[in-house]
Design a protein around this nucleic acid. Structure first.
Length: 104
DNA sequence: CGATTGACCCTTC
DNA sequence: AGAAGGGCCAATC
């Protein structure tokens, strides 16, 4: 059965992405581009696709766009959680400049 | 192989 | 500060 109606990256890539997202500590966020760069593979779009399909089991709210925009379709929930964790927010957006985190 | 699509990113107006 | 266009990578039809 085709779980996805569109292109889905290799399982290995998905695994890597989810692992990185799980490593993001509370109060910090990571951008799609950052994840893609850290993995050194694919691009922001692949990461986004992975999150859309398989992001249900990880703190997806800690993954934001480069401009600080939170996940579309779940802004309220994401903002609420981020606020709870003490993530630097700038109104309805995340202050990526301060909150962006990179794995060691 | 060409066209299409997607939780994107960057430059420019 | 917001909108538009072009580029990006991988997979499916």
């Amino acid at each position: 059965m085709r779980w996805a109606a569109y292109a889905v990256p290799a399982m290995e890539y998905v695994e890597s992405v989810l692992t990185v997202v799980e490593r993001i500590p509370p109060g910090r966020v990571m951008t799609y581009g950052a994840i893609a760069e850290y993995l050194g593979r694919g691009g922001p779009r692949q990461v986004g696709t992975v999150m859309a399909r398989y992001g249900g089991g990880v703190p997806w709210h800690r993954v934001v766009a480069a401009n600080g925009r939170v996940v579309p379709g779940h802004e309220e929930e994401a903002l609420q959680r981020l606020r709870s964790e003490g993530t630097p927010l700038r109104g309805d957006r995340v202050d990526v400049h301060l909150a962006e985190w990179w794995p060691d």
